[in-house]
Design a protein around this nucleic acid. Structure first.
Lengths: 128, 128
DNA sequence: AAGTATATACGAAAGTCTTCGTAAATGCAA
DNA sequence: TTGCATTTACGAAGACTTTCGTATATACTT
């Protein structure tokens, strides 16, 4: 029985990104990755990861001295959940408004645009 | 001199949505709109709006007994800021990943898809 | 004028998140 | 073995958010 859909905070998401991108990792490794981007204390990261384990966002192997943490929620599924919520609160549920702003704002490469066009084509085809 | 880009919380965003959609409004009106969607106390909304005025997210006309509040940050600009942050934390900055998930997930109407296709076309044209 | 309804003001409680200091345990090196 | 480095454990402070009870002010109604 899965409880409510988990709502990782920004800090937790920061850690999850490292775990998703690199697989199971030690606290030190995660700490080093995050340190590249901003100042943070080692024990701060440790504490966050411990809490994430308590919450069920992460699991850990404690069989050795250096514990190894792994993400316990899937990347895409989590993104879906967060995206849905974000779309609701910020764009009143309008996917197209969100997409238009996302595309209009960031520089998107031609390849990415093609990818998106292909998806739209597929969606339109399905609708018949 | 604008300070840092404002970061409205979910509750504040909920209120801003009402103000953006309906223009300057009384606390009671905002309270009634939000009440349609979830349970909330009148004084809770009042307090939030007072805090928003302190923070500069909202302005208010206190010339009459019933104060009238208005949004003091623009809708699109705020969406842009929040979107950028969200894209970074949740999608590691990848606009296309976000867009693909947004389209793949929600039901988007043919009209909206056309709109998006048109935008992509425009962007590709500009790139030559 | 008295009483009722509505509005704002104030403050505080409860919950969460982030941060980190300090202590204790564990492994390594000389 | 002794000492040093690394790791986890614990706890607590500080900031922020959300919530609402209570008090006070203002207007309306009869």
């Amino acid at each position: 029985m899965p409880g409510k859909t988990p709502r990782p905070t920004d800090s937790e998401l920061e850690i999850l990104q490292v775990l998703w991108a690199n697989g199971p990792s030690s606290v030190r490794f995660v700490y080093e990755q995050i340190s590249k981007q901003r100042d943070v204390g080692y024990t701060t990261v440790l504490k966050l990861m411990q809490i994430m384990a308590e919450k069920g966002l992460a699991g850990r192997d404690t069989s050795r001295r250096t514990h190894i943490y792994r993400a316990r929620i899937a990347e895409e599924e989590t993104q879906q959940n967060l995206l849905r919520r974000f779309m609701d609160t910020t764009f009143r549920g309008s996917a197209s408004k969100l997409v238009l702003q996302a595309l209009g704002n960031a520089k998107t490469s031609p390849e990415e645009l093609d990818e998106i066009k292909a998806l739209i084509q597929r969606m339109e085809d399905e609708q018949e």
